[in-house]
């Protein structure tokens, strides 16, 4: 699998993302600077990592979402190429128009950094085949703006078309209520594009790939992508 990890000023999770991709695929991803106009030839997957691009100025992800390289990412996605945005990367994908909706300030106004359980809503997409449908996984969250909002029609469409990827749940898998950390609509932690080839999520699966640091529940996501690319 040829993966490209995008780099914008202010991101800080690109190293973690590259490590997770290399662990799953055996290949070192390319690091691509935002001012570039093209992705490396033969790129299968574009990963937009987390952090604080442009210091979260204006709105989270607003400036990065309009960078040169995002035109190439839009073209890659239109061709059916895989794209994943994690945390600030999810915000960037929303601001770039690749995913609908917006990530607003957390309901309680606090930056939240903790372990969080997620429910895997479907296991038949390029990103989730290594999981079971309905499986509860434990990953990390670290964000101040993770409260997913969209107009009613968009939410209806996301729900109706099975485009919710992950929801916040408790350790027993019960979705929502006190397990929703940020007030996100319908407990949404991640969503897919219409063709299921673009995924955005607030939690950090790339930080849960080593038993020494909290667990390995994030590995499934990278293993899924790697096996999808092998089969393609």
């Amino acid at each position: 699998m040829k993966a490209a990890v995008l780099l914008f000023p202010g991101l800080n999770r690109e190293g973690d993302a590259m490590r997770a991709l290399e662990q799953a695929s055996g290949l070192k991803p390319a690091l691509v600077w935002h001012a570039e106009h093209e992705l490396p030839a033969g790129t299968d997957l574009v990963l937009v990592p987390g952090g604080f691009s442009y210091g979260d100025y204006l709105r989270c992800g607003a400036i990065a979402g309009r960078a040169n390289i995002m035109d190439a990412v839009r073209a890659h996605a239109a061709r059916g190429g895989l794209v994943i945005g994690i945390c600030n990367g999810f915000q960037i994908l929303c601001e770039s128009g690749l995913l609908p909706g917006v990530l607003m300030r957390n309901r309680d106004l606090r930056f939240i950094c903790k372990m969080q359980h997620l429910s895997v809503e479907r296991a038949d997409t390029p990103f989730t085949t290594a999981y079971r449908k309905g499986q509860t996984i434990k990953v990390a969250i670290a964000h101040g703006e993770g409260n997913y909002e969209a107009d009613e029609e968009t939410i209806r469409r996301l729900e109706g078309d099975g485009r919710v990827a992950f929801r916040y749940c408790d350790a027993q898998g019960a979705v929502g209520g006190a397990a929703n950390p940020n007030g996100s609509t319908n407990d949404i932690a991640g969503i897919y594009s219409e063709k299921l080839n673009v995924l955005g999520l607030m939690p950090h699966p790339e930080n849960l790939i080593d038993p020494l640091v909290g667990g390995t529940d994030g590995r499934g996501l990278f293993a899924s992508i790697a096996s999808f690319s092998r089969a393609a």
């Binding site: 709105r59 607003a62 309009r66 601001e95 609908p100 909706g101 909002e149 107009d151």
Partner: peptide, 8 residues
Amino acid sequence: KLLANLVV
């Protein structure tokens, strides 16, 4: 293009 996010 930039200053406002018309979603919200």
